[in-house]
Simulated scan of single mutants.
Amino acid sequence: MDSMNAPAWRKSSRCGTSTCVEVAKVDDNYMIRDSKNPDAAALTFTKAEWDAFVEGVTAGEFRF
């Protein structure tokens, strides 16, 4: 991917100085990567997969 089409990675404001995941939107896909290893392959999700994940988080499905 050239620099003109590079993803605009975003990190949660709650991360502070610790390691976090970063998220980017490219076309209709969402990408997630480890901020401490940005050169590793990112996980890619469709909009439907991303929406299902966000809905699950909002509903509290991932609380332990």
Rank of each mutant, 00 (worst) to 15 (best):
M1L: 10
S3N: 05
S3R: 13
M4R: 14
N5S: 12
P7C: 04
P7Y: 01
A8C: 07
A8H: 12
W9V: 13
R10N: 09
K11T: 08
K11F: 00
S13P: 01
R14V: 07
C15H: 05
C15K: 07
G16M: 11
G16P: 15
G16V: 11
T17C: 04
T17A: 06
S18P: 04
S18E: 12
S18A: 14
C20S: 03
C20T: 07
C20Q: 06
V21Q: 09
V21P: 15
E22I: 07
E22R: 03
E22N: 05
V23Q: 05
A24C: 06
A24Y: 01
A24W: 02
K25W: 07
K25G: 06
V26Q: 05
V26L: 05
D27E: 15
D28N: 03
N29V: 10
N29T: 08
Y30K: 01
Y30C: 02
M31F: 11
I32M: 03
I32A: 04
I32D: 00
R33G: 09
D34G: 04
D34E: 13
S35W: 04
S35H: 07
K36F: 06
N37F: 11
P38F: 08
D39P: 15
D39R: 15
D39I: 15
A40V: 13
A41N: 07
A41F: 06
A42R: 01
A42V: 00
A42I: 02
A42W: 00
T44E: 11
T44F: 03
F45D: 00
T46R: 01
K47Q: 04
K47L: 02
A48N: 09
A48G: 09
E49I: 00
W50A: 07
D51S: 13
A52E: 11
A52D: 12
A52C: 03
A52F: 01
F53N: 00
F53E: 01
V54P: 01
E55Q: 14
E55G: 15
G56T: 00
V57K: 05
V57N: 04
V57Y: 11
V57I: 10
V57R: 06
G60I: 06
F62G: 05
F62L: 08
F62V: 05
R63V: 10
F64C: 10
